[in-house]
Nucleic acid binder design. Structure first.
Lengths: 212, 212
DNA sequence: TAGATTGTTAATCGATTAACAATC
DNA sequence: TAGATTGTTAATCGATTAACAATC
């Protein structure tokens, strides 16, 4: 099976967003050059990326509505994915409250926490359950995707529990490299690292200005 | 000035987290090989990364506490950065509630929204102010960093306002490529893209299993 | 000393950019 | 037709990995 690379996949939601906006405005076609300008990447790269999901029309460009549909299929945005979230700290709570995932096919159906005091609370219409009930529910509901937002000290341990219950895709927000069996997919997200990067650039800039 | 690359900077918070945990357990030294295993990256790369922030000791490894301190300095984690957040939708609200940024030197001091109904509300001890008051406050408090969590249709417009008021670093959560003057730093964060990537891998895996 | 580990150079790999023939 | 735009190959760039001399 041809497999597109991670860089391309991570740009697809971006294409999607732009093409969707165009579609709504009734635009029918767009050239790689046009997308290039909006995305800030080379037109060659746009053509290479879109070659995976669409066939362009010479002299005209890419057909907006069908490209949108194809990206949706490609990313599995249609068949909604039910997921469990584990760890209702400030970040977990934040993600529970975020409504933007729905469009990408992500539906958080339950949240879990080890803290007795949190169990029973309801956040954004989702009741918090004890982690002890996680394995049974994963099996019963055939959940495949888990969002991991526990403190990093608990991350590996919690991931082990998720995996042994049958979860095969983990969206990991703890700043830890998880060790998982072959075949289990892990995607690491690190908000703090994102900020660190911005801040580093800023400090560099300010230093340059003041010094010499 | 020597400048370390973005890939290295984005790994530094990860090193930091691990080294901090070691420091707390009283560990004095760690080898590149040891870090390599924990991070899941090559030991060569660890040595190259750490060459920017520390000097290793032959036969012994890297001194944990001093490396921690050096990373903190490098990322500007000490001198706390005050920032404004603009756009109190579900994501903005989520970030306001997240307490994990403090350690990385990020302090959100005020939040803004265009929606009259939201103005005056208090979220996580931060009062929501009208966007119209943003420019004056940026100037008065000398704010340099802005977190942009408005709908993507408003993103460019809002960014323009921020920049003209004096903000020079934008942490952009809207899935849009912002056009900003030279010298303004933009860091794009796209949570949906992160999920899309995980989901793509999962779909691929499930398809492989069932198909053929 | 012998062995372990760093720091760095060279080789490899993968992704982006440039160039251009094909063609509608 | 002439011009614009795709799809693709080749060139470039940057980051990771491998190898190894230096050395504590």
């Amino acid at each position: 099976m041809r497999t597109l690379n991670a860089a391309t996949v991570s740009r697809l939601p971006h294409y999607y967003q732009i093409l969707r906006a165009m579609e709504q405005r009734g635009r029918e076609y767009v050239s790689s050059e046009g997308l290039s300008r909006l995305l800030g990447i080379d037109a060659s790269l746009v053509r290479k990326d879109l070659a995976w999901v669409a066939t362009g029309v010479q002299k005209v460009g890419y057909h907006v509505p069908s490209t949108v549909t194809k990206i949706q299929e490609m990313l599995g945005m249609n068949n909604s994915k039910e997921a469990f979230l584990v760890g209702v700290g400030s970040l977990g709570r934040a993600l529970l409250g975020y409504t933007g995932f729905g469009e990408y096919g992500l539906k958080i159906v339950a949240a879990f926490d080890a803290d007795e005091a949190k169990v029973g609370q309801v956040i954004s219409d989702i009741e918090i359950l004890p982690v002890s009930s996680l394995p049974a529910l994963v099996r019963r509901l055939h959940i495949k995707t888990g969002i991991l937002t526990v403190p990093y000290t608990e991350a590996q341990h919690t991931a082990d529990q998720m995996v042994s219950a049958g979860i095969v895709a983990i969206w990991n927000f703890a700043p830890v490299t998880l060790t998982v069996p072959d075949g289990v997919i892990v995607r690491n997200e690190n908000l703090a690292a994102g900020f660190a990067l911005l801040n580093y650039e800023l400090e560099k800039k300010l230093k340059n200005r003041s010094g010499r």
